[in-house]
Computed example of a mutant assay.
Amino acid sequence: MSGRELTLLDRGSVELLGRLPRSSNETFLVQVSCGDDAAYAVYKPEAGEIPLSDFEPGLYRRERAAYLLSESLEWGLVPTTVIREEAPLGIGSLQWFIECDFREHYFTLYADAPETHRHLSQIALFDYIANNTDRKSGHVLRGLNGRVWGIDHGLCFSAAFKLRTVIWDFAGDPIPDALLEDIAPLAEAAPPGVAELLDDAEVAALQQRVQRLLHARVLPVDRTGMRYPWPLV
């Protein structure tokens, strides 16, 4: 996170540039600008959401909650994300756009870039904590500077266990002690900013998932072989 990113996302004027393809909900590339400074962002308005039976409207809140969770852990896995009420199509999330080679995704990074494995396994841990229902391969990016990011967290934090992800290559691996220390406070309480965006049952379930991780000390294993999103990429 940087002051520039927050300033542009929080206060910048928002100009719609176009709809991003292959998104389940309406998702837009926008330009945010303050004076002579401008940058790209991804805008997900509540008005563009397809109604779901298992998630209440307002998925943008979960996008923000995932960012705040990552920041509270000091992991920096999720691009800067804010909620904007005054935006072209109404309230929604604005997320900093990551410049990257979009031919790369989780499967290519795992196969061709072993130097990313530590960060990929960290995303797997993050997704279990957040109960990510939709970690497709294309939701993992590597920025032009080599940094690995996770995006698209609208379907996270359900109270019911719904984990679906393509990141199972690290299943059963020990969780490093440093990461266990990072997540330990979550067993007692969710960060205030995260808790404000979720309901009580979702907060309690997050704490319980962390408690299980602290007991097991290994990355989760899918014994059903069915916890995959579709499409995979």
Rank of each mutant, 00 (worst) to 15 (best):
S2I: 12
S2V: 14
E5Q: 14
E5C: 09
E5R: 11
L8S: 01
S13P: 03
S13L: 08
S13T: 11
V14S: 00
V14C: 07
E15C: 07
L16A: 15
G18C: 11
G18K: 06
R19M: 14
L20W: 04
N25D: 13
N25Y: 06
E26P: 10
Q31M: 15
Q31G: 12
C34W: 11
G35F: 01
D36H: 04
D36I: 05
Y40G: 04
S53L: 13
P57W: 02
R61M: 03
A66L: 05
Y67N: 02
S72T: 12
W75S: 06
G76H: 06
V78L: 03
P79T: 09
T80N: 02
P88F: 06
L89M: 10
F97C: 02
F102E: 09
R103H: 11
E104I: 03
Y106K: 08
T108G: 10
A113M: 05
A113Y: 01
P114K: 00
E115D: 15
H117I: 03
R118G: 12
H119Q: 08
S121A: 14
A124D: 00
A124K: 00
D127T: 07
Y128W: 12
Y128I: 05
N131T: 05
T133K: 00
L141R: 03
L141F: 14
G143Q: 13
G143N: 13
L144E: 14
V148W: 00
I151C: 06
G154E: 01
K162V: 11
V166S: 06
I167A: 07
G172T: 09
G172I: 09
L179S: 05
A184W: 01
A184D: 12
P185Y: 13
A187I: 10
A190E: 01
V194H: 01
A195R: 08
V203Y: 03
A204T: 08
R209G: 10
R212H: 10
L214Y: 10
H215D: 14
H215E: 15
R217S: 10
P220G: 04
P220D: 05
R223C: 11
